[in-house]
């Protein structure tokens, strides 16, 4: 059963296209991670999933139905914790109780608020009566999360929930949101830079870059300046002197994006026979994350100033004996590099 079905979403702010997503399905009770650099459209996608905005083109089906913002079908089921937590100018108790009050569901209110606060590691006794202004950043974020958890939402959307909080708060926030899925089967969609969390807990990770989804890893963007090279291709000299070769762009496109699923990783010196149209870059492995499925490993490789993240099969990583600091060569076909 899928909670969300996204169909041909094109979303614009004014003339600027901010999202272009063809088809994505998010199953019920799953955890979906959203990664991508700032400005890649993560927050916008979360707002669309929260039905705070309506996609300019295309449709998002919720439990198989088309819905519009403020619709009663989703209002009480989906909740978003925005990137900058906002607490209303009232007590912690009133902030947490707000959602239940507007649902006219105030039975055992005090006990439930206490429970929600305890869930995010805040002592109800000392925090309930506190003012919104008397909280640290991490506490604010946790109170904001408690205000969502108390609703036992069907879908909980988290936008960088751990980005600007202390590590203690971050741990509590992660625990509490995972517990929501375990206890109530809440579907989670999380935008985060926390790689470890992503690959440890997420069933699916969606890679966003400039409003587009990349399969198999995080696309890596390269900007100019470019110079004209051989075979009618363009070249970019990286900081360490290596040269990246890309095809000529279409009119008006400025950034080249390397799609990691098209790359081949080998150890230096053991390169397969080079074909005429294949180029090679050398890099250093910086991070390795085993994904939740246990089969694939997210591998971050630093190539001069670029970081390329590739999803590799676990047995391949073991065969190559990859570890951080390991030097690798990356073979690519310049024609696979796309322009945006």
């Amino acid at each position: 059963m899928s909670v969300y079905q996204l169909k041909d979403i094109d979303h614009y702010y004014g003339d600027k296209q901010v999202l272009s997503i063809e088809n994505v399905t998010i199953p019920a009770a799953s955890i979906t991670g959203l990664v991508g650099p700032n400005g890649s459209g993560k927050s916008t996608l979360l707002k669309l999933l929260a039905f705070l905005e309506e996609a300019t083109y295309g449709a998002i089906l919720f439990n198989g139905q088309k819905v519009v913002p403020l619709s009663d079908k989703v209002r009480f089921k989906v909740t978003l914790l925005a990137q900058e937590p906002y607490l209303m100018r009232r007590s912690v108790f009133d902030n947490v109780a707000y959602g239940l009050k507007i649902r006219r569901d105030t039975k055992n209110l005090k006990a439930r608020v206490g429970e929600a606060l305890a869930q995010v590691g805040l002592d109800p006794q000392s925090f309930s009566r506190r003012k919104w202004s008397a909280l640290s950043g991490g506490e604010t974020q946790r109170v904001a999360l408690a205000a969502r958890l108390i609703l036992k939402p069907e879908v909980l959307l988290l936008d960088e929930p751990t980005a600007s909080v202390d590590s203690h708060s971050a741990r509590l926030i992660k625990q509490a949101s995972l517990k929501a899925r375990e206890e109530w089967g809440t579907t989670l969609v999380v935008a985060t830079h926390d790689w470890q969390w992503l690959y440890e807990t997420c069933d699916t990770v969606l890679h966003l870059l400039h409003g587009r989804l990349f399969k198999g890893g995080l696309g890596c963007t390269v900007y100019g300046p470019w110079r004209i090279g051989q075979r009618d291709l363009l070249q970019k000299e990286l900081e360490d002197g290596q040269v990246l070769v890309v095809p000529r762009p279409e009119e008006g496109k400025e950034m080249a994006v390397i799609n990691p699923s098209k790359l081949k990783i080998t150890l230096p010196g053991r390169d397969p026979l080079l074909k005429w149209n294949i180029d090679t870059l050398y890099g250093i492995v910086t991070r390795l994350f085993l994904e939740r499925n246990g089969d694939t490993v997210q591998t971050a490789i630093k190539v001069a100033e670029l970081v390329i993240t590739i999803r590799l099969q676990r047995d391949k990583v073991e065969k190559l004996k990859l570890s951080p600091g390991q030097k690798v060569s990356i073979a690519y076909d310049p024609r696979d590099i796309e322009w945006f």
């Binding site: 929260a50 909740t79 914790l81 925005a82 707000y98 959602g99 507007i102 904001a144 959307l157």
Partner: peptide, 19 residues
């Protein structure tokens, strides 16, 4: 963010205005 918060906690237009 107030607006986003109110909407995502389930407020309708009237509640958004009042809050």
């Amino acid at each position: 963010n107030l607006h986003i918060t109110l909407m995502s906690l389930g407020a309708n237009s009237r509640k958004i205005a009042a809050s």
